[in-house]
């Protein structure tokens, strides 16, 4: 089937179909949230900028969480050795991202002059890195468990 969304979909047909379901489920949740917002906006003052951010968050988070829990990201990880290798790679990627982002921020955006600024920046960066690592780890663990059951 020809569709403009193809560029967001993988080649593998099982993954393609599953991800389409996740997008569709996320879109329905988004519509429900927006309908509820319209109804409640008659009774309470609504900050539309915040509502748009929450709506995007609902869709994005839903798709990411469903994808991570589905165990379809790491299709080739079916042994303890492969699991450890991918875990090491994930740790390296997360650490590299944190260091590169911190350096680029200091070089291009702002050099934190006060201790409080540096503390805020490092705290935010560590939180993002931790969430990223946790999502990756959950996805890896789910994939490993799923693949173990499917491998002969």
């Amino acid at each position: 089937m020809k569709t403009w969304i193809s560029f967001l979909l993988p080649d593998d047909e099982y993954k393609e179909r599953s991800i389409l379901y996740f997008y569709a489920e996320g879109a329905i949740l988004l519509v429900i949230f927006l309908l509820l917002t319209i109804i409640f906006s008659n009774f309470i003052a609504v900050d539309y900028q915040l509502i748009i951010l929450i709506a995007l968050g609902i869709f994005g988070l839903y798709v990411v969480i469903r994808y991570s829990l589905s165990g379809m990201e790491y299709t080739e990880v079916n042994s303890e050795q492969a699991f450890k290798k991918e875990l090491k790679l994930l740790t390296t990627k997360t650490t590299s991202f944190t260091i590169i982002f911190l350096l680029l921020y200091i070089l291009l955006v702002e050099y934190p002059t006060r201790f409080q600024d540096l503390y805020d920046l490092v705290g935010l960066l560590c939180s993002v890195a931790l969430v990223w690592f946790m999502i990756g780890f959950i996805s890896l663990k789910s994939s490993y468990q799923k693949n173990k059951k499917l491998t002969d």
Binding site: D12, E13, Y14, T75, E76, K149, L150, D152
Partner: peptide, 19 residues
């Protein structure tokens, strides 16, 4: 066949109906 090993595993177990 141009799919992932996981897809083959799912087909074999009858957990995914292929096209």
């Amino acid at each position: 066949v141009g799919v992932t090993r996981q897809t083959i595993g799912l087909v074999e177990k009858g957990e995914y109906n292929p096209t």
